[in-house]
Design a protein around this nucleic acid. Structure first.
Length: 433
DNA sequence: TACTCGTGGTT
DNA sequence: TAACCAAGAGT
């Protein structure tokens, strides 16, 4: 192993103060940031593992309402915990979180452990979560290294290679950076920087408090970092191959102050050519063409929104003159030109039912020939993310209906295969368990 | 070490 | 559209 020298203390001090200053000027108001008790932080950190902040928020609030404290969670039957977790993914996390709560009750008498070894020993608590917990809930200077921090530090120090191989180095850098005071704020500031400014694809370098000390920015390899685990085989252009790595943000005049942090870090920061990189012009991959049809073809997206064993269906108005009056159907509608099925469903369901949904992968695609047109439909399973469905789009009525009773309702012919598929889901599920 | 676990969003 | 990515952990 190479003995890399420790970071310059002045560099460390500068990074700390700039990050904390930024944090104190303002940060996102997230529900778990409103409390400091270890239980709430633990729940948040586990939910946040490999899961976006925006996804976690509604689950977090519901979960804490259902299980407001350690005891409530430890005592809760596992199926209830899993139900509250349903839709978040990585369900092992839910089991381990409950197990951790039980461990704290049995092994620590209900008092949250405060040493690294004890916290780390809890089920589902790895190096990251232990560091987050100890720094945020208990104000202890342990580092965190998540995807955000790895990216920020890789860029800040212009590390080469796969961040996974650099993990040791990154952990040690993170450890040198955490300040003894306000380590929790510092760690969150570092992650928030990675989430909001030092983003993977479109970094907002001009707004970054560390920009003048960022080696990648001075070397021009910001978006190229961190390197991917496996370099893609890409046709390499003869000239200007490097230009691919140029940040998409407009080039900035090299600032006078950029020498400040760079000198502390000891970067040699070779001066990049002052020329803006030539833009790569890509041929548009468009050009799909549909064969001329005797009758119009209509693209339709259908949402099978489920809750337990029930699906949400709506009834078309009885008013004569409407197409298929009084027929039941799944929510959805016509796709607009160029609109993805996913976007279409989110839009249609918001309009028709006033709720926000998550669209899961397509489970059925078919076309149905009516007399006057051909309907091509794609069906997705969907879940409600927020809101309570109401008939806001002119339907006669909406209803949650158990799968096996769907058959009793009158559906348009094109929807029949959907019913069959949903019934098949149900059968395979009950047979599987 | 490298794989698996879920789901939603992004490009 | 397909691949990649997201406040990782366990095996």
């Amino acid at each position: 192993m190479k003995a890399r020298g420790p970071l310059d203390p002045r560099f460390v001090a500068e990074v700390r103060s700039r990050l904390l200053e930024k944090w104190n000027r303002g940060h996102r108001d997230l529900p778990w940031r409103r409390r400091r008790d270890a239980y709430a932080i633990l729940v948040a950190e586990v939910m946040l593992q490999q899961t976006r902040v925006e996804t976690v928020v509604p689950y977090y609030e519901r979960f804490l309402r259902a299980f407001p404290n350690l005891r409530a969670l430890a005592r809760a039957p596992l199926p209830r915990v899993l139900a509250a977790w349903s839709g978040l993914g990585y369900y092992r996390r839910a089991r381990m979180l409950r197990e951790a709560a039980r461990t704290i009750l049995s092994r620590h008498g209900g008092r949250f452990p405060e040493t690294y070894e004890e916290v780390r020993a809890l089920p589902g608590v790895g190096r990251y979560t232990a560091g987050a917990l100890l720094s945020i809930a208990f104000g202890k200077p342990f580092p965190v290294l998540d995807g955000n921090v790895a990216r920020v530090l890789s860029r800040l120090l212009a590390l080469r290679g796969d961040p996974r191989r650099n993990a040791d180095r990154l952990w040690s850098v993170a450890a040198s950076l955490v300040p003894p005071r306000a380590p929790g704020e510092f760690n969150q500031a570092l992650m928030e920087l990675g989430a909001l400014l030092c983003a993977a694809r479109a970094p907002r370098c001009p707004a970054c408090p560390l920009r003048t000390g960022c080696a990648a920015r001075q070397g021009g390899g910001v978006v190229a970092r961190p390197a991917k685990s496996r370099e893609r085989e890409r046709p390499v252009r003869q000239e200007g191959a490097e230009s691919v790595n140029t940040p998409p943000a407009p080039p900035f005049a090299p600032s006078r102050s950029s020498r400040f942090l760079a000198s502390l870090r000891g970067s040699k920061a070779a001066n990049a050519s002052g020329q803006p990189a030539p833009r790569t012009v890509r041929a548009k991959p468009r050009g799909k063409r549909r064969p001329p049809a005797a009758v119009p073809v209509v693209d339709v997206a259908v949402a099978a929104i489920w809750r337990g064993d029930e699906y949400l269906v709506a009834r078309r108005p009885l008013r004569p003159g409407t197409h298929l009056p009084g027929c039941w159907e799944f929510p959805g509608g016509k796709r607009r030109p160029g609109e993805s099925a996913r976007a279409c469903l989110k839009r249609e369901v918001a309009e028709e039912l006033g709720v926000e949904i998550a669209v899961r992968p397509e489970f059925l695609r078919l076309s149905h020939r009516y007399e006057d047109r051909i309907v091509r439909l794609t069906a997705h399973r969907c879940r409600i993310l927020s809101g309570v469905p109401r008939a806001t789009g002119g339907q006669d009525e909406i209803r949650w209906v158990a799968v096996e009773r769907l058959g009793a309702l009158r559906f348009p012919p094109a929807n029949r295969p959907i019913l069959e598929r949903l019934l098949a889901f149900r059968r395979s599920r009950s047979a599987g368990s």
